[in-house]
């Protein structure tokens, strides 16, 4: 009897289980999770594991045989060159992001005002710098800036202007790496801002025009508030990517002259790979993580707030 009773209870439980599994699989969130699972695994393997591994490396001594906690960071904080790299990375990232955003904003307005028929052509052309692999395009820039055979200097000489040491003098070298970064990154801002501009309802401009708003007031009171979220996200993304830039500086100046164009990634490579001090290199590359993480939290929190307001 007892056996029969158990059999009787087990069948509905199995059926219930099957039904709940079916329901779970039918749920949109489960399907979404399963579909993103390969990507999650890939990111875990290629991003999360290396990130934790570099954290581990940053706590080792130079020969990687001893745990020294935050010793590498304490060492770095006493190095003059490290603070030079911090300063340069900030100059590099802030200047480049500011000009990328400004140029992207202006160009997006120009493109937005082009009649729809020819707009696609312009959008495609303006995206070219962003779609060329930066290592390749920077090589072209390197030839344009070459110390002895610069194409720019050749043109300048043609109009009687003295040759410019594009990568030989501190100021010019900084200018050159920032210029190339802006050239490469501005199209990204342009396309993001263009998408955002297209989503601003025309009625708002019409209402502003009826209220007598001038060009500047339309931008200040209508366009910018409507683009706030996209500006914040784009800026955050670009700040992170620009702080982590490697290829442009590495190819153009390799951090010289006199270390005056090093950013975190290039200096970390110099110390870690070329200099054989991998833990110190890992520490340099990790230095910005907490600062950028805090910045990201603030910017994203602000976006949430605005989202809720709307």
């Amino acid at each position: 009897m007892a056996d029969v009773a158990i059999e009787r209870n087990a069948a509905p439980r199995t059926a219930r289980k099957r039904a709940s599994l079916r329901t779970a699989l039918k749920r949109k969130s489960t399907a979404a999770f399963l579909m993103t699972l390969p990507l999650i695994l890939l990111i875990s393997l290629l991003v999360i594991y290396p990130a934790f591994y570099s954290l581990h490396l940053a706590t080792l001594n130079k020969s990687m045989q001893r745990f020294i906690g935050l010793g590498n960071f304490q060492f770095l904080f006493k190095r003059e060159t490290f603070w030079l790299v911090v300063e340069q990375s900030c100059i590099f990232a802030i200047t480049a992001v500011f000009f990328k955003a400004l140029i992207g904003f202006i160009v997006a307005h120009f493109v937005h005002n082009i009649p729809a028929k020819g707009q696609r052509k312009w959008r495609g052309m303006l995206l070219v710098p962003w779609v060329i692999p930066p290592a390749m395009s920077t090589l072209a820039w390197l030839w344009l800036f070459d110390p002895s055979y610069s194409a720019f200097n050749y043109l300048l000489a043609g109009v009687g202007v003295d040759r410019i040491p594009w990568t030989g003098e501190t100021g010019w070298a900084r200018f050159s790496v920032i210029l190339v970064n802006i050239w490469f990154g501005a199209p990204f801002f342009m396309i993001m801002y263009l998408a955002s501009l297209k989503s601003v309802p025309d009625q708002l401009y019409e209402a502003a025009a009826i209220d007598g708003a001038n060009w500047w007031q339309r931008i200040w009171y209508v366009t910018l508030p409507m683009m706030r979220n996209i500006i914040a996200i784009t800026t955050l993304f670009s700040v992170i990517v620009t702080f982590a830039n490697f290829d442009i500086v590495r190819i153009l100046t390799a951090g010289g002259p006199l270390d005056r164009t090093h950013v975190f990634a290039t200096w970390a490579f110099r110390i870690g790979i070329e200099g054989g001090d991998i833990p110190l290199g890992a520490s340099v590359s990790l230095f910005m993580v907490p600062i950028l993480a805090i910045a990201a939290v603030f910017i994203l929190r602000d976006i949430n707030k605005r989202g809720n307001e709307s």
């Binding site: 110390p147 002895s148 055979y149 040491p165 594009w166 990568t167 030989g168 070298a173 100046t253 390799a254 010289g256 002259p257 006199l258």
Partner: peptide, 21 residues
């Protein structure tokens, strides 16, 4: 030396010789 020598890399001197400068 050439005024731009502080920005030379390992290819710069080769080009300097080959170009006859």
């Amino acid at each position: 030396l050439p005024s731009d020598a502080p920005s030379w890399d390992d290819g710069s001197n080769n080009r300097w010789l080959v170009s006859g400068r």
